[in-house]
Amino acid sequence: MTPLGRSLAERIALAGPLPVSIVMEEALAHHAHGYYMTREPFGAAGDFVTAPEISQMFGELVGLWLAAVWDSIGRPARVVLAELGPGRGTLMADALRALAKVPGFPLAGPVHLVETSERLRAIQAATVKAPVRHHDRLAGLPDDAPLLLVANEFFDALPIRQFVWTGRGFHERMVGLDDAGALIFGLAPEPAAGLPAHVPPTPGDVLEWSPAGVAVASELGARLAAQGGAALAIDYGAAHRGFSDTLQAVARHAYADVLTTLGEADLTAHVNFAHLAAAATAAGARAYGPIGQGELLARLGIGQRAARLAAANPAAAPSIEAALRRLTADDQMGSLFKALALCAPGVPLPPAFEAAP
């Protein structure tokens, strides 16, 4: 049992089983044992690789997407350029390099990064070649200029609640202790009420709900409606999902057992984009998509960008082609990862979402 596992086991022994959402939150953000507080998760030497770490093309094209939105809303003299969960800052660094080549784009102000890990904040400040202002949460961002925001693999790390249909109703999945004191999954004795299930369940079906993700999407929608601008969220999950158990732990680029690796493995769940879009639109924004990451990048010109990079450095052409395939192919990240655009009312249809549902 990990140090965090022992701490949670003691807590459960005293106060009873904990919801999955609390266990997930502690596993990722516990001040002493949380995964993002203590470990270097990114890259080949870490536990997983994100799209910005695969190729500079990803962040550059995200930057150009933001620039196109800025142009479509009248090229305002000031914007709030922000990212949720910036990792090592690679995406924003690449986006800024692309934005610096856009005539007139306002780069005089600081870049706003929402990050709770002090360790990652230091890495981001060194990676992003611009003044950085860190915030603990979305509410800390300025609201006096249009918001241009990106969130890549942010929502998948927000805690989820899980509910299992038993025939009597949806019972919340809890983490308790077995007779030997080990952590185990179980169910709350009484069914929960008021859950967003839209199709008839069968016994054993698992409903996942992210109150934290929905809250962020709602707040983001309200901000966009009030101050203008747009946001691009890229993550893995389904456009419309029914019932499934997607909670997973990843360590050293392989799946791991959730309860025996708490604090020492990344915990994520697939994003329900329909829930995010509904929350943002209810708060006043407009939602477009989701579309596949491969479709997004293709429409933004990743093929042409890859060709130019390969022509400039022929020796790197094989690795550029490999990165292109990993980012866009349906059997790689192209279909599993999706992009959702959230815009203020009146913002023209955002780039790449012309044929989005």
Rank of each mutant, 00 (worst) to 15 (best):
D178E: 11
P203N: 05
D136R: 15
E190S: 03
A77R: 10
L187E: 05
R11Q: 14
P131K: 01
A249P: 10
P200Q: 05
L220Q: 00
P103H: 02
G228E: 15
A45L: 07
R137G: 11
A122V: 12
A182E: 15
T246R: 02
R78L: 04
G169S: 10
T127W: 00
A108L: 07
P191R: 08
L267W: 00
A180L: 13
D179I: 12
R326F: 08
E208P: 02
G16R: 07
H112R: 13
A192C: 03
R305D: 09
R137N: 11
E53G: 10
H275A: 08
L276I: 09
K338H: 12
A29D: 14
R133T: 15
P106A: 01
P17G: 06
A32Q: 14
V199I: 07
A239T: 13
D94M: 03
I123D: 01
L297S: 04
A225F: 02
S55P: 04
G181A: 03
P314W: 14
L8Q: 11
A283K: 15
A13I: 06
L276G: 02
V80S: 02
L195W: 13
A157F: 14
F163H: 12
R137H: 14
E26P: 15
P350Q: 13
F154T: 14
E321T: 12
S117C: 07
A157P: 14
R299T: 03
A27L: 03
P290D: 09
I302V: 03
D235H: 15
L91V: 05
W70K: 04
P41K: 10
T202N: 07
P351F: 13
V199K: 06
G242D: 08
A98H: 03
L147R: 06
E118Q: 15
E60S: 08
A356C: 06
L232T: 07
H112W: 12
A182G: 14
I22H: 10
D71Y: 08
K338E: 12
V62P: 03
L28A: 05
A238I: 04
V102F: 01
